[in-house]
């Protein structure tokens, strides 16, 4: 069969990020013999699992034509809350009480913290009709400040083996964080493709007024979406904290940018209504492989940032062109 422009064009468009990923892997493996090893494979996947968690939530937000700049700070606070509760519990001196936390309890508290902050974002955006950019920018500062207050500016360390298992352990030959982020992705794929909530998210991003007239409760859906984004950032916080066995007050700084980059490279439109969770996962993998490859090739971290920036530009330019066709 002869390949003409019309026959291979749709194929290219559909799989453009996978093709880019393949080319990237091929290139790096030719330049470094450490890249194509089993150890490095799991290493990359483990590293990106935090970004995958955050970016899954970010994708939902961006699909509604919103944005969440606060995920990095929310991640830090969630991790710090979990670590603090594990380490110190809550002493109540007046009643001469001490409330201790199990690992599971502390983890749920951390995720809950993220969800509450996310809910607050959604509430502020819908109640006061704030642009998501502004509301979540405010939350970026608020959550970072709360993290500093909670940790008093020092890392909280020594969290115990059962907690660090979450970030460093293996299960059936696969790192635990990869299991966790993989399961969250699977749920998110199901929600976006197979539920009313998912459909409404796409509809709101496609045309908010049409969705409203179709009986969609816009405010409710948006609040749910921002709450999920906060909760998923919270999960990311647990992974980071557990991996380092330490909650750093400045953890997650600028993670929102990597997350937005993953979403955009994955083909989700920043104006909403178009994109997918799996696209974002590909975006996160591309960024992860790129980071890993540049490290293996001994490229200076400063150059890594420059390269990453150009990759984002390239991805968006290609996306714009395919959108027109």
């Amino acid at each position: 069969m002869q390949l003409t422009a019309t026959t291979y064009r749709p194929f290219l468009t559909r799989f453009q990020s996978l093709i880019a990923l393949f080319v990237l892997c091929l290139g790096i493996s030719l330049l470094s013999d450490k890249f194509l090893t089993v150890a490095n494979f799991w290493n990359v996947l483990r590293q990106i699992s935090v970004n995958v968690c955050i970016s899954t939530g970010m994708t939902l937000v961006v699909l509604t034509a919103g944005i969440d700049l606060s995920v990095g700070s929310v991640l830090a606070l969630s991790g710090a809350i979990t670590a603090g509760l594990l380490r110190n519990g809550i002493p109540v001196p007046s009643a001469n009480l001490f409330i201790g936390f199990t690992v599971l309890g502390a983890m749920l508290a951390g995720i809950l913290t993220g969800s509450v902050l996310g809910w607050f974002n959604g509430w502020a955006i819908t109640r006061f009709k704030l642009p998501p950019f502004v509301a979540t920018l405010a939350m970026l500062t608020i959550a970072r400040g709360l993290t500093m207050l909670w940790t008093e500016g020092f890392p909280i360390t020594g969290l115990g083996d059962s907690f660090t298992f979450l970030g460093t352990g293996w299960f059936l030959g696969v790192p635990v964080p990869v299991w966790l982020s993989g399961m969250l992705v699977a749920i998110a794929v199901l929600v976006t493709n197979k539920t009313r909530l998912g459909r409404y998210i796409y509809a709101i991003g496609g045309s908010e007024s049409a969705a409203r007239l179709s009986g969609v409760n816009i405010d409710k859906i948006k609040i749910v979406v921002y709450t999920l984004a906060g909760g998923l950032a919270g999960v990311g916080g647990l992974l980071v904290t557990s991996r380092l066995d330490s909650a750093q007050p400045n953890a997650g700084t600028s993670y929102e940018l990597d997350s937005i980059a993953a979403v955009v490279i994955g083909g989700t439109s920043l104006s909403g209504g178009r994109g997918s969770i799996l696209g974002t996962v590909q975006g996160a993998i591309i960024i992860g492989v790129l980071n890993n490859g540049l490290v293996l090739l001994n490229v200076s971290p400063f150059w890594q940032q420059v390269v990453k920036g150009f990759v984002i530009l390239l991805a968006v330019i290609i996306d714009k062109r395919t959108e027109k066709e």
């Binding site: 199901l190 493709n193 197979k194 009313r196 496609g206 045309s207 049409a210 969705a211 007239l213 178009r274």
Partner: peptide
């Protein structure tokens, strides 16, 4: 206001009646 232009025909038609195209809670 009437349509989500970027969505396909069938998704637009079912948007007001999603509960009618569900099976066991999933679309």
């Amino acid at each position: 206001d009437g349509l989500v232009l970027g969505m396909d025909v069938q998704t637009n038609i079912s948007l007001t009646a999603l509960e009618k195209v569900e099976r066991a809670g999933l679309l």
